[in-house]
Design a protein around this nucleic acid. Structure first.
Lengths: 332, 332
DNA sequence: GAACGTTTTGCAACCGGTTGCAAATTTGCC
DNA sequence: GGCAAATTTGCAACCGGTTGCAAAACGTTC
């Protein structure tokens, strides 16, 4: 069925090497044989077997794309950008859905079996050790949306979540809120931990402001709604920094359901600026995370690491900024 | 760096064949050598190279997952289910993002280079010819969410869009609307064409009901909002069947923006029942498309076709049903 | 212990490519 | 046309596995 190198060689009347060389960049072939080979290849509908060649070259152009975020609409944008970015560089994404798994062993084994050239871990909830497991197995790896560290063991690309927490606090303070709160994602998510850190650090400089904190069980609409409903029954704060946009939207829904209005009764600021945040019926004030830049840098970094595996681990952080929309009252 | 069959064989003091056989299901190895080999394999951290073995076995366990829907939140659910479903069967998804490409030639070539065992085309907008190109290239293929045909050339799994259009019309009629309309997706999408067909077929049996139609430029929030805004400026219908949920949400936003209420002033019924449709601040009445079943069947079918490539093309359709929520007035 | 049937084993060829090397061809120059 | 240098070519070995086949080892039975 499949047409191979040998078939083309026979038809073109040349050796197999000649055929191989016409399909390898920068190999030594005369114009004449190249023409013969190309003609035969087209006639037979030949295209080289990438996996067979990987055996000798050691490169598959396969990149493992590992994620556990298949319920946050932001990640559709993330997958879109990753797949397009990889394709543009001639690389192929092998997608791994972690679901509830947190042990890297299986993923490492599987991706090594497929000899991926590199791995991108795209998750803001997995611990650094997850990506490190790939490094230990000798697989070039980049942790996208991962936890910032000054002395990282693996490449990390993302944002400074501590700074974002601080930025959120300052945005609330600037708008004159005096009773604020952080409604975080899951307590175990590194992103939530860091955002809380920054949020409360900023507030420590403003002792006059009352602050509290609670956790949603996941980064999801339902969890945000449930948690906010609970908060509304007690004595809610004037404004909330929500762990991310989808959590914010859940909270907004709870507020509306309770017959309250946003921002008149309660303010909300999210984080991510996912596509949906600008939908007019949501119109969420949020902190933009520059995902296109993060993803571009992640791909660049994994490619660079494939070329020089001993490259020193690096952290690349991108600045975030507040996107002013309709869920916080304006700065006075 | 990488540890190979030969290393394990040497350490275990057996032939390479013996090692290969201990890792192949149902091969003939004595308990004694198996134990020796496994011990050596663990000590060296060996796991077999899936791509090398694919050379002789002809199976890579790689499945091409091709889609052009990276902006519709429904497809995050779709990718989640596909990746999990494939993983559960020991298969690996190689993701292809079509973006604006409609010519299958590139995808076919690329996926053949990677010797995928099969391909799943997940799209409700691509024409049947797209999936057929894979079949012609000898690659087992299933078109998920594809156009229903009584004499298909390739396997199709999805819903009967004509029947859904009819169901939508009947739902509106049953609720006493007398001026209705279809706000479709892009005119070229097969799903929109078929839904329109069914919608107007049902209305032909009710000549007393006024009906009209328009197209949104894409299946997206913005397109739905823009189109509905335009419609509201003229003389809008009492109720709209929108091409899908995300279009519906855009339309809802436009309605709200115009100071109108739903369902009091205008009714909306969507299609898909994506996760977001049940969010309380959206609460969209819609027609549920059973995506988990569709995806499960698609995987089963591609696996079956890999085993018997000459399998006769088949259409598997799953029934849809109306999910009653808050954007249509109740049945009297 | 011999004869026989079963398992298990290793050899060697193969899957579809790549690549170092030496031989063959071409090119440039006088 | 002759010669040296440069380019192109094919051979053969290899990448990391699998597998048909014949030989070797094993287990039974008498």
């Amino acid at each position: 069925m499949a047409v191979t190198l040998r078939d083309v060689a026979k038809r073109a009347g040349v050796s197999r090497s000649a055929v191989s060389r016409t399909f390898t960049e920068g190999a030594s072939v005369s114009a004449k044989t190249r023409a013969k080979v190309e003609k035969a290849a087209i006639e037979l509908g030949y295209s080289p077997n990438a996996l067979a060649s990987s055996l000798t070259t050691g490169r598959t152009k396969l990149i493992g794309l590992v994620s556990n975020n298949f319920h946050n609409p932001l990640f559709l944008e993330v997958f879109d950008l990753f797949t397009r970015g990889l394709q543009d560089r001639g690389l192929r994404p092998l997608l791994v859905n972690l679901s509830n798994e947190t042990d890297p062993a299986n993923s490492v084994r599987m991706l090594r079996q497929y000899s991926v050239d590199g791995v991108i871990v795209a998750s803001s909830t997995l611990p650094p050790s997850f990506a490190e497991a790939f490094k230990e197995a000798g697989v070039p790896v980049v942790h996208s949306f991962g936890r910032f560290s000054t002395s990282p063991n693996v490449h990390v690309v993302g944002i400074d979540n501590v700074a974002c927490g601080r930025m959120a606090a300052e945005a609330l303070i600037a708008r004159g809120y005096t009773r604020v709160a952080f409604l975080g994602g899951p307590e175990t998510a590194t992103s939530t931990q860091d955002r809380a850190l920054g949020f409360f650090a900023a507030l420590r400089e403003h002792p006059e402001i009352e602050a509290s904190m609670s956790y949603a069980s996941t980064y999801s609409f339902d969890a945000g709604r449930v948690e906010m409903t609970k908060l509304l029954m007690a004595d809610p704060a004037e404004a909330y920094f929500c762990g991310d946009d989808v959590l914010s939207i859940g909270a907004l829904s709870a507020i509306e359901e309770a017959g309250l209005r946003c921002p008149e009764d309660i303010g909300i600021i999210g984080l991510n600026d996912m596509d949906m945040a600008r939908w007019q019926n949501i119109d969420l004030t949020t902190i933009r995370q520059p995902i296109a830049e993060i993803i571009g840098a992640s791909i660049d970094l994994v490619v660079a690491t494939i070329e020089r595996p001993d490259r020193h681990p690096e952290t690349r952080l991108f600045p975030c900024r507040v996107i002013e929309r309709g869920t916080l009252r304006p700065v006075p």
